[in-house]
Design a protein around this nucleic acid. Sequence first.
DNA 1: CTGAAAGCGCTAACAG
DNA 2: CTGTTAGCGCTTTCAG
Lengths: 335, 335
Amino acid sequence: MKPTIYDVAERAGVSIATVSYVLNNQRVGKKSKEKVLQAMRELNYKPSVLASALTGKPTSTIGFLLPDLANPFVAEMARRVEDRAHERGYNLVICSTDFDPNKEALYTSLLKQKSVDGFILAGGFKSVEIIKELLEEQTPVALLAESHPSTSVNSVKVDDFTGGYEVTSYLLSLGHRRIAVLGEDATSTQDRIRGYKQALMENGIEVREEWIAISDFNRGNGERLVGEMLGASDRPTAVFACNDLLAIDAILAAREKKIPVPDDLSIIGFDNTLLSRACDPPLTTMEQPMQDMCSQVVDLLIEEIEGKSDLKKRIIMLPRLIIRQSTGPCPSDKG
Amino acid sequence: MKPTIYDVAERAGVSIATVSYVLNNQRVGKKSKEKVLQAMRELNYKPSVLASALTGKPTSTIGFLLPDLANPFVAEMARRVEDRAHERGYNLVICSTDFDPNKEALYTSLLKQKSVDGFILAGGFKSVEIIKELLEEQTPVALLAESHPSTSVNSVKVDDFTGGYEVTSYLLSLGHRRIAVLGEDATSTQDRIRGYKQALMENGIEVREEWIAISDFNRGNGERLVGEMLGASDRPTAVFACNDLLAIDAILAAREKKIPVPDDLSIIGFDNTLLSRACDPPLTTMEQPMQDMCSQVVDLLIEEIEGKSDLKKRIIMLPRLIIRQSTGPCPSDKG
DNA sequence: CTGAAAGCGCTAACAG
DNA sequence: CTGTTAGCGCTTTCAG
C-alpha cells in the first residue's frame, strides 16, 4: 500500500499531528521537522489530496467547461489556461459542452460532486441559470470570452462590439458596400454583428438580413451557407466571418465557386488562431489577446478561490486588426 | 452547507447505512428505498466523490497526458478521448507535457496524489521509467499513438512503419526519387522514417541523411528546415511530413520560395486532421483512424481500472492514404 | 432488510 | 512545540 501519514509518523517517531504540521508548514521544532522530512523521503510519501480535501481544504482542481476542444481556437485557449493554472498549482478537468445546456448542467453537477474549487466557463456557455446557481452557492466562477451583463460574475473577454465595428469599418474603407456576416449562435457573435450593423448604419448602408448567416455547430454548414450567398446573382463582395474556422469555410466556399480571394471576394476572420497564417490566402483577422485573457481568468478565479478578493471584475480587452492577404479593395461594382 | 448522507438519513428516518445502500443499489427494502430517494430529491443531495473515494472507491477520473493541447491534431484526439470517457462516466484531467520528462514526472505524481483511477499517455511520452513505475504500482495505464515494445502495457496506435512505407511508395509511384522527410523527435517519427527508408531501399534508391530533418517543437522551425532543403540547388521533389502541421510548414516554405505545389514539389502529410482539408492545396495525407483509436484506449484503460480484464493488449491499426491535391507526378528531372 | 460502529487519510482544535 | 482526539462524508463488516 501507499504510505500514509501514520507510516511517516511512526518512522519519524512522532505523532501524525506533527507530520500534518510539517505538511502545512506550521510551527514545528527544527529537529522533529527534519526527522519527519527524512521519513517522508525514505517512504516516498505523498499526501492524499482526497483526504485533505475531505477536511475542507481545496482540491487545487478547476473545472473548465468549453464548447468544443476539437476547435483549434478553443484548444489553443485551453492550453493557455492550462499553463497558467499549472503555474499556480492547479489542475484542469476539461469538458466540452457543445453549447448544450444539458451537458453544461451535467458537467457542472458532476464536477461539483468531485469538489473542484471553481469553474471557468468559456466561449458560448448557454445556461444563465447554471451560472446563477453557482453564484448563489458561492462556487467560484469566471467566464472567459463571454459575459452576462446582468449577472455579477468575474469575466474576461474581448470587446466584441468594437471588434465587429472595426472589422466592418476596415472593409468599408476598402470600398466594400456589400458585406456578409457568418457567425455562430453565441453571444459574442451577436455583439460582433451589432458592431457590424452599427458601422453599416453610420455609413448609410442598409443592413440586409439575408446576408447575416448563423451556422450551427455542425462542421461544413458554414461552407454551405456562404456558398448559397455566393451563388446569388447579387452577391456580397466581402465576408466577415466571426471566427477563423468559419473564415476558412468561406474560403472553401469561394474556392468551390472559383471566386478568387481577395480579388473578387474579401474574407476576414476573427481570433487570429494558428490557422489564420496557415491557410491560403493567409487570413486578415481580428486578434484576441488570448494569452493575456487566459492568464487573467485563471488569476481572477484563483483570487476568488483563495479568498484574496471577493469583488468581482469584468475585464474587457481590445481586439486588434491583423492585416494579411485575404482582404483587398472592392472589385469595381456596377450594382 | 451541502446536504450530506446524514441529512438524508435523518429526513428519511433511516440510518446512514441504508442511505449508502440505496446509493450503491444494494439490497434495500422497497419502502425505505422510496423514502430515501424522496429525501434525496427534496434535499437535492449529491454524494461526495471525495468521501467515497477515500474509502477505496474509484474517482472516475482519468489523467490524460499529452504533448501539447494547442496542437490541433492533439486537440482533436483529446476531444475523442473525452467523448468516450464521458460516455463511460469518467472525467479527464488533461496535462500538456511538451515532451518534457520533468513535466511528465510532475504531472503523474500530482495526479496520483489526486487519486485518478488511471492514465492515458498520448503521443510522444518520453519517460519509459515513469511508465514502468506506474506499471509496478499497478496503476492502470494505456498508451495512445505510442508504444514501448519492451514493456507490457496497454496501447493503441497506428502502424507507423507501414504508414511511412506506404507514403513513400506512393511518392515513388508518382515518379519521385528525391524525397525528403520532415519529422519530430518522437518514436512514431522514427518508425515512419524506417518505413520510408525501407521503401527507398527496396527501390534501390540511396537514403540521403541531409534530407531527413527533425524539427524541434518550436513552431516555425519546420518551415526553416524545409526552406533550407529547398534552397539547395539539388533539391527534393517531394516532402514527406510526419504530421499535417509540419506539412503546412512545408507548404509555407514552398510558397516562400515560390515553388508551386504540387507542380514542382509534392507534399504529403500524416494524420488527416481538419487542417489538411483547409489548407491550400488540400493535403494528401495518411489518415489515422482517430475516432476508433481513441475510444479503444479509453475502453482498454477502463477495462483495466474496473478489473474486468487484466491481460494487456497492444492494438495496432492501419493508416489509410487520403489523396488530395498536394501531390502530383514528379516534374521531369534531368538528375 | 437495517442499524451500529469502525475506518479511509488528513486537519485542527484543545490540552499539555 | 507536540500529542490526543474528534471529525470530514461515505463504505462496509458484523449483529440483530
